[in-house]
Nucleic acid binder design. Structure first.
Lengths: 300, 300
DNA sequence: ATGTAATACTTGACAAAAGCAAGTATCTGG
DNA sequence: CCAGATACTTGCTTTTGTCAAGTATTACAT
């Protein structure tokens, strides 16, 4: 599998890189492991030896000696815990704090120097990518937020529909054109008091959308529901649909309707679960494939 | 969080991670530095000691001993260079190659196991992000390729225009709508024998576009030239315009015209340099700002 | 309450890893 | 042919890390 190789390649690349810019410990008066301990302690404020050991992945015996050395140098102080006589609460002394700050400054400078060699957009790209890596590996379920639309979003909606429906169902460019028309129409004729678009964002980029537009005084229409593959499986589709229902209800519409296709199983399941009923089916041939269009509605 | 901190945070995160999954050397019969040397040698096939040392960032004295040990174990063989008696060409013996392959397999398995815990779209996101990081840090000038449009691209064109012109010049959504209309029109009425769209791609994602459309039998129009900030500064705009000129010329058009704005300095410079002449100026007020539209043309 | 097991460290003994400096053999350029 | 550079090697040292055993304290089951 190619992905495995890509990861391994990166591992080799990055370990080499890190070897070169060993995070700021170069030129410091402390040997590396002492600096690591000092640094971690400075970051955390106060902790016990075993916490430290677990975090830095150091042998406890070794760590014990490192701490001794730091204590001898007057950088770290330990205080037996009141609750648990076995534990020692470690913290930096004033001198230790100074040493930490100097380490910290050095490391910061080094990174700043490295970043400084890159143009601003490259920096943004780099930082974004690093955050993605960390997010994925930490399995932080990458928070998804909803917001209104802003510049570029209609374009995103068009491109997401064009790209995904082509990839997943083979719909041709006529579909992208249709969506472009809907998006343009939305921008041109938006009635903000009765209509709305939601963009779902994950890690700073759009991953989903849904629209509510006015069909008549009493009837609102839900359109352009889409969720990127990478954001699926966390109930985002449902969440978007629910926003629409709440909005339509709040604005006093009596009915929320939508048009979908019989083979869009995931979307249909959401509609059904949200209380929509199918009211009509009609086979048609559009976007280069044979489809069965379905009309669904929800009484509000 | 600022960029420097973000990078430092990642460094700490990743070194911890790597500590945990020291690339496949765990459980191998070789201590880590020997395994590193063996691995690198397996990757490269043949090289000299100093190349190896430079790459792995090892002290040459230390490396010399490591190599001795590998030689004693019958894993590595050295052969004095014919051209340069000081050098020794190192290579793996058959036994060494076997050892390397076992290391390699172990490492691959470990990474595969880690990846396996992630859903497929997460894997894709991870690999993409890793490639971005490496690309940016290596300052590989990320090759830019041109291609015709495909599904999703018209949407991308719309979103790029909407986003960038808003960010850089404050043009409001009426501009995005205009672009959406142009894009839709292009999809609906495309005459492939006389019209064309180019999408510039960098690292697998679109970073620029340009269109040639038919205005009349003899006159072609260049439209929607755009280059993402991150892809600027490498002559991509010029390259796109030149594609258009060559295409228009090849198709027998007599004139290539375009409409632009007086404040779009970068684009205007490209047009001027490519031989376009400004033929008309007209102030107007559109997209929520005061502008001076300019008509340029090039006799083919 | 009392003995057993677990936790939170410390200590001693060692081994592996890494760095530094001096040395040898070879090549390069004047 | 010589001064200086290159490509290693060797000896000596420090740093870094591991392992196992030891102490004090706490948690828990009887």
């Amino acid at each position: 599998m190619n992905r495995v190789d890509a990861v391994r390649r990166f591992n080799r690349f990055y370990t080499r890189r890190i070897g070169v810019l060993r995070p700021g410990y170069l030129g410091s008066p402390f040997p590396l492991p002492l600096a690591r301990v000092l640094y971690e302690l400075g970051q955390r404020g106060e902790c016990t030896a075993s916490e430290l050991g677990g975090d830095l992945d150091l042998d406890l015996g070794y760590l014990s000696r490192l701490l001794q050395s730091l204590r001898r140098q007057g950088l770290v102080q330990g205080q037996a815990s009141k609750q648990d006589g076995r534990r020692v609460h470690l913290s930096l002394t004033t001198k230790g704090r100074r040493a930490y700050q100097s380490l910290d400054a050095r490391s910061r400078e080094e990174v700043a120097g490295m970043l400084g060699k890159l143009a601003a957009p490259e920096q943004v790209r780099l930082v974004g990518a690093l955050e993605t890596v960390e997010g994925v590996l930490e399995r932080k379920p990458a928070e998804v937020t909803l917001r209104g639309h802003r510049s570029g979003d209609m374009g995103w909606v068009v491109q997401a529909h064009g790209r995904l429906y082509y990839a997943e169902y083979g719909w041709d460019e006529r579909f992208e054109s249709l969506v472009a028309g809907i998006a343009k129409d939305f921008l041109d004729n938006l009635d903000p008091s009765r209509e709305r678009c939601w963009i779902a964002e994950m890690a700073g980029e759009p991953v989903g959308s849904v629209f509510v537009v006015k069909q008549s005084r009493a009837v609102a229409k839900l359109r352009l529901l889409i969720v990127e593959p990478k954001a699926r499986g966390r109930g985002l589709g449902k969440r978007l649909v629910e926003e629409c229902i709440a909005f339509a209800r709040g604005k006093g519409y009596r009915k929320l309707v939508l048009w979908t296709q019989s083979n869009l199983a995931a979307a249909r399941a959401i509609y059904a679960k949200s209380g929509f009923k199918r009211v009509k089916r009609r086979p048609h041939r559009e976007f280069g494939v044979r489809l069965v269009g379905e009309y669904w509605e929800l009484k509000l």
